[in-house]
Design a binder for these strands. Structure first.
Lengths: 140, 140
DNA sequence: CCAATAATAATAACTGTTACTGTTTTAATA
DNA sequence: TATTAAAACAGTAACAGTTATTATTATTGG
């Protein structure tokens, strides 16, 4: 039986209001403002719970900590190789790749996980500027 | 400057001869047979090195430890939700999804990471048998 | 063969996450 | 409203997987 909790509601609302796919640590730090003695364990527990309820999404980038998305609608993510930021992509349907992948496979393919990588708009602009200046390394 | 090492060569050869995408721990245990005092750190270091050289592939399943594939040719993987096994899929080209994903995106999409999930042939067969027997839970 | 340096074994440290424990909050019922 | 069982909590310890450190050993160009 699921019981209401202020902390869980705040975590969910926080995520709904953000579009940068924060980590559990970031969420924890922000929750501390509202609940000064909230526990990191509480954040993790509620993130897992909300994910299994389908109210938020967990993004495993493969490098570093998992990230969380308050938008539960199906969509794909873009991860910048330079700055590590995670962005939402316009909703597209790629279900046909399940059929392609199933060729000559004896098991049952239910779905896929996918994300895209490259350079985000900001990092692309920055790199272009550096090139004009002669590829001088810059700390940004 | 890269120097030869027996351990690295053995790790690579071990991976080339396996098709089950073992974890670093499994590789370590197997290497111990040949090099009884090899260190787990050596295994991790060489796996990272071989991955960055493009001689092997690292697979991040999202749950549990990373897995490694001695086949460096581009191909996709299937992960069984039931038993956790990782299998190679027939080589297919999905580069067109990069174009689809790039719609209305201002950054630069270089590529994607994708894997498929569902039930492997063995687990599918096993589930089918259980159903015939009346869905009795079985420890296998 | 020798010197420079890359790789090693052993181990400590670190990151991200989960589990445990005693206390507090929620919510159903009296 | 008061009682009470269950769920959630804060605090903390433990854990898994991986990376870094250090002193020693192996490789390789001269």
């Amino acid at each position: 039986m699921l019981k209401y909790s202020r902390q869980r509601e705040s975590i969910k609302n926080f995520l709904i209001g953000r579009y940068d796919h924060p980590t559990a640590e970031t969420i924890y730090k922000n929750m501390k403002m509202e609940y000064p003695n909230i526990s990191l364990g509480t954040v993790y527990r509620n993130l897992s719970l909300l994910t299994s309820l389908g109210e938020i999404q967990k993004i495993s980038t493969g490098i570093g900590p998992d990230r969380f998305d308050g938008n539960s609608a199906p969509h794909y993510h873009f991860i910048c190789k330079d700055c590590g930021c995670v962005m939402d992509l316009k909703t597209i349907n790629l279900d046909h790749i399940n059929i392609l992948a199933a060729q000559d496979f004896a098991g049952e393919i239910e779905g896929h996980y996918a994300h895209f990588y490259g350079r985000c708009p900001d990092c692309q602009t920055r790199t272009a500027k550096q090139s004009q200046q002669g590829d001088v390394p810059v700390n940004v």
